[in-house]
Amino acid sequence: MRAAPHILLKDVKKSFGPKQVLNGVDLAVPKGRSLVVIGGSGTGKSVLIKCILGLLRPDSGTIEVAGENAIGLKGDERERFLARFGMLFQGAALFDSLPVWENVAFGLIQGRRMERGRARDIAIAKLGQVGLAADVGRLYPAELSGGMQKRVGLARAIAADPEIIFFDEPTTGLDPIMADVINNLIVDCVKRLGATAVSITHDMASARKIADDIAMIHRGRIIWQGAARDVDRSGNDHVEQFIHGRAEGPIQMDVLKA
């Protein structure tokens, strides 16, 4: 018998005005697995993650995390819920006004009210895990390169040893070598924590590297989900076109119609 999914979405819909972004998403992520959601720009990948985190409220459907409802949480209940998660944002979303170590330790100091000295030690250790020296902790985000900012964002995402980690376009804007470094770090961090991971990307090299399972979202629906090793024989025209980056195929026809 299969274990209950760690994250479960059923018929989740979300629209912004007349634009239907999520159109009945069904998705199950088993505990400890790394799922990568692929799809083109504007297909609802980021909205999907924001709905799970409660940053956006879905119009309908259900979202459960570890068997508990994740929609409409407030106050302490929401804080406890969010303490399960770490998130690496597309642009790293580091706080400009704080030095690097305080960015990494932010969730520990403000969210978990840990003493600053102890939080700083953990932050420096986490920076080490993503390949950054302790003296980087004194710098400000504006003084870092894009790749270093992503590493700091990753250190912040894993600082509180979360049980679930989200990665939003983790390799966007990076050169191929730095992208591969980030992919390796993601795989390493997720395995070390034993966390459940959900990543969204349109970078297939990244998807192949970090995914146990892959799902493809198109027009607000999951149109294919399977093991990462099966993505090359999905038998789905949309997936085929996407993973090979072909201009011709059903996806472009949809775009032209839209």
């Binding site: 924001k50 804080e79 969010l82 303490a83 642009g91 979303a93 400009d96 969730g107 969210g111 912040r156």
Partner: peptide
């Protein structure tokens, strides 16, 4: 505004910090 468009306010929420309070 810069924090909003660079997702720093969303990041605050994911770090269990209420942006209205902080």
């Amino acid at each position: 505004g810069t924090m909003k468009v660079t997702e720093q306010i969303d990041a605050l929420v994911t770090l269990s910090t209420n942006p209205f309070k902080y």
